[in-house]
Computed example of a mutant assay.
Amino acid sequence: MANWAWFHKWGSPRWFYQFSGRLLPWLAVPGLLLFIGGCVWGLLFVPPDFKQGNSFRIIYVHVPAAAVAMGAYMFMATAAAVHLIWRMKLAAMVMKVVAPIGASLTFLSLVTGAVWGKPTWGTWWVWDARITSVLILFFLYLGIIALHQAFENREAAAKACAVLAIVGAVNIPIIYWSVEWWYSLHQPASIKFIGESTIHPTMLRPLMATLSGMYLLFGWLVLLYTRAEIIDRERNTRWLQDMLLTDRPADSAERGA
Rank of each mutant, 00 (worst) to 15 (best):
V82D: 01
V82Q: 03
H83R: 13
H83V: 05
L84P: 02
L84N: 00
I85D: 01
I85S: 06
W86T: 10
W86D: 08
R87E: 12
R87F: 06
M88T: 13
M88N: 13
K89I: 08
L90I: 14
A91S: 15
A91E: 05
A91P: 09
M93T: 01
M93W: 07
M93P: 00
V94M: 13
M95H: 11
M95I: 00
K96S: 13
K96E: 15
K96N: 12
V97I: 13
V97Y: 02
V97L: 13
V98N: 06
A99F: 03
A99H: 00
P100T: 11
P100G: 10
I101P: 00
G102T: 00
G102A: 13
G102N: 08
A103R: 07
A103I: 07
S104E: 09
S104A: 15
T106K: 07
T106W: 03
F107C: 15
L108N: 10
L108Q: 10
L108E: 05
S109Q: 04
S109A: 15
S109W: 07
L110N: 03
L110R: 01
L110E: 00
V111S: 02
V111F: 14
V111E: 04
T112M: 11
G113S: 01
G113P: 04
G113L: 04
G113K: 01
G113N: 04
A114G: 05
A114F: 03
V115R: 11
V115H: 08
V115S: 03
V115K: 01
W116R: 06
W116V: 02
W116H: 00
K118M: 14
K118V: 05
K118W: 11
P119K: 09
P119Q: 05
P119I: 06
T120D: 12
T120G: 00
T120W: 03
T120A: 12
T120C: 11
W121T: 05
W121C: 09
G122F: 10
G122C: 13
T123C: 07
T123I: 09
T123P: 00
W124D: 11
W124F: 14
W125I: 08
V126N: 12
V126S: 07
W127L: 06
W127K: 00
W127E: 07
D128I: 09
D128E: 11
D128N: 09
A129F: 02
R130Q: 08
R130T: 04
R130A: 08
R130G: 05
I131N: 00
I131C: 04
I131E: 07
T132K: 07
T132C: 09
T132L: 13
S133E: 06
S133T: 14
V134N: 05
L135H: 10
L135D: 08
L135K: 06
L135I: 10
